[in-house]
Amino acid sequence: MGKENLQDAIVQFAPLDKLLGLGRANSLWPMTFGLACCAIEMMATGASRFDLARFGAEVFRPSPRQCDVMIVAGTISRKMAPAVQTLYDQMPEPKWVIAMGNCAISGGPFVFKGQYGIIEGADKLFPVDVYIPGCPPRPEALIEGILELEEKITGSRRWPRVEAG
């Protein structure tokens, strides 16, 4: 994760790119897209106490055409996979994906020998920028994931990192 994944444009306008990146990173518009349990923690992150608005990412949009971040919050079933793929394709560039929770990372607790119903991870469908483990992850973890994404977009971290322990 980090800077090394950034794709460089063919023609560079370095100061302008930096400025745009700064603007994008501090006003991420996620999609209102809940699949399962993690969606409730996503709601909690946006609601009182955790207040995602502090980091500029509270503008949840129901339409993919108005968003630049897709938070995959929950299990992707095989029946749902084409719809998720469509939603991703409908988002305008530049766009980022956060895989929230174990189901979106790898299928989580629903993977077993002979399973017939789920996609084992959002990255089987499209590229994922930030992975947030947990079942479900706490709201703090989602906020940290969004800060990681900001760092990936701008190349530097705006908020101090909190060490574990």
């Binding site: 399962a36 299990t75 749902m80 399973q115």
Partner: peptide
Amino acid sequence: LGYIHRMHEKM
């Protein structure tokens, strides 16, 4: 229905 069928009964 079935967009979040997670196979609980099979599990």
